[in-house]
Design a protein around this nucleic acid. Structure first.
Length: 419
RNA sequence: GGCAGGUUGUCCGAGCGGCCAAUGGAAACGGACUGUAAAUCCGUCGCGAGAGCUACGAAGGUUCGAAUCCUUCACCUGCCA
């Protein structure tokens, strides 16, 4: 059995850590209790959070005790972004998002058995504290001089906009979580994204100052593509874990579309595949990249992890059918119906102009945009390029009498379904 | 509370009475284009078929004409109290 810290490092999941030797020792000495927090900044978790969930999962499987924290209180305050102040969400909204995220986290961890994961909400211990106790008992441990040097805070102090006292206080609240979990659960390790380093070390410092204990933290790297752009955006939108916000089809497609230069890195991070398997896939990327074997493996594994095997099989079959080499019209009715069921789409009657159909189906935002797409030669019906903006969908365009496949560019598909 | 500066399209950022649907970057999208990859080059990038309409923090006003001038309000920043 390999050392879990080696495993994490090999998978590229460790960016920065406190005393590495001590942390490595602690992890190999026996079960460590660790936590990672997720703030409710949206009704769903997203790509970036998935990295953290994967880390927790690996650590739990290695026998460690995982606490998953949802930030009912920190979510009310807002982690300072380097760019600008956040708009406060109402308490009701935050509470709603907390419960959604608590649900969402369940499938990734094991909440039963020997080293069952624990779900906590920091509102439980933060809400009862009075402002005076907070300032006296917690605030006294913090030097503003240090707080001001944290990256996000420093960036905001430089900016025109400045930073509110509310957001400035954020690091104290997060540090308090670590102290609380250390006291209640013996938690001695916190993980988080690279941007969380300042908040994590604030907690490590607080535990040390308040209780004299040495605890650890490590961050995962920010995942970027070859051009240095953050992963997790698809057409400008975040890739969400909630099927309502990013459909399993779109989710799968996101991963299939990963560039060659990054696919191996992502396989290591997001899949359970062994070194041997990943090395084999890496060779295939090098030798026959056009097969996209690694991308398909990645997409399949991650979609299964997030949406389950059934949904994955459906979107996979759909993708094969729609992006396959064959003529769409030759697909049998059943396959076509299943495949297009995964696509976004709308009801479009026979006789609708292709311009209106492209809008209705959501491939473009406006009729003007639809015309432009057609003029650019970037739109097609059933894989046949539309040459004329006045073209109308006729009976024969609805394959099997039911559905026309509209496409913008190489990979944006939608279904025009006959009502 | 006083004084000064700011608020422009997805983001950054010019414009400071007509030539402004608004320069320039970035992002995004499409084509060439193969591999549902990258890079490169070219194109597109408010709504509307068009007339036109809506947009430069909000509401009023001046003017033949306002993102640009005036008034009030809101928010942000800095200095002073």
């Amino acid at each position: 059995m390999t050392d879990i810290f080696d495993e994490l490092q090999w998978r590229g999941l460790v960016a920065q850590s406190t005393d590495e030797a001590a942390l490595r020792q602690a992890l190999s000495d026996g079960p460590v209790t660790l936590y990672c927090g997720f703030d409710p900044t949206a009704p769903s978790l997203h790509f970036g959070n998935l990295v953290q969930l994967v880390v927790l999962r690996l650590l739990q499987r290695a026998g460690h005790r995982v606490i998953c924290l949802v930030g009912g209180s920190t979510g009310l305050i807002g982690d300072p972004r380097p760019t600008s102040e956040r708009v406060l969400k109402t308490k009701e909204t935050t509470a709603d998002w907390v419960s959604r995220i608590q649900q969402q986290v369940q499938p990734f961890l094991d909440f039963e058995g020997e080293n069952a994961a624990v779900l906590v909400n920091n509102l439980d211990w933060t809400a009862p504290i009075s402002a005076l106790d907070f300032l006296r008992d917690i605030g006294k441990h913090f030097r503003v001089n240090q707080m001001v040097r944290k990256d996000a805070v420093a960036a905001r102090l430089e900016s025109q906009e400045g930073i509110s006292y509310t957001e400035f206080s954020y690091q104290i609240l997060q540090a308090l979580d670590f102290l609380q979990l250390y006291r209640d659960h013996g938690c001695t390790l916190q993980t988080g994204g690279a941007d969380q380093w300042g908040n994590l070390t604030a907690g490590v410092d607080l535990v040390h100052r308040a209780d004299g204990a040495a605890v650890h933290c490590f961050t995962t790297p920010l995942l970027t593509d070859a051009a240095g752009t953050k992963f997790g955006k698809s057409e400008g939108n975040a890739v969400w874990l909630s099927p309502e916000m990013t459909s399993p089809y779109a989710f799968y497609q996101y991963w299939v579309g990963v560039e060659d230069a990054s696919v191996v890195k992502l396989l290591k991070v997001f899949t359970d595949r062994s070194r041997d398997e990943i090395e084999l896939l890496a060779r295939q990327v090098a030798e026959e990249p056009f097969r996209r074997t690694a991308q398909r493996a990645l997409a399949s594994d991650v979609t299964t992890l997030v949406h389950g095997a059934t949904a994955t099989a459906a979107v996979q079959a759909a993708s094969e059918a729609l992006f396959g080499k064959g003529d769409l019209a030759r697909l049998d009715a059943r396959t076509l119906a299943d495949a297009t069921a995964e696509l976004p789409g709308a009801a479009v009657p026979v006789g609708t102009s292709v311009v209106d159909a492209l809008v209705a189906v959501g491939l473009v935002d406006s009729r003007n945009a639809a015309r432009r797409a057609i003029a650019d030669g970037g739109a097609s019906v059933n894989n046949v390029r539309i040459g004329d903006a006045d073209q109308v969908l006729v009976e024969a365009d609805f394959l099997g009498g039911a559905v026309a496949v509209l496409k913008r560019g190489r990979r944006n598909l939608a279904a025009a379904r006959r009502p």
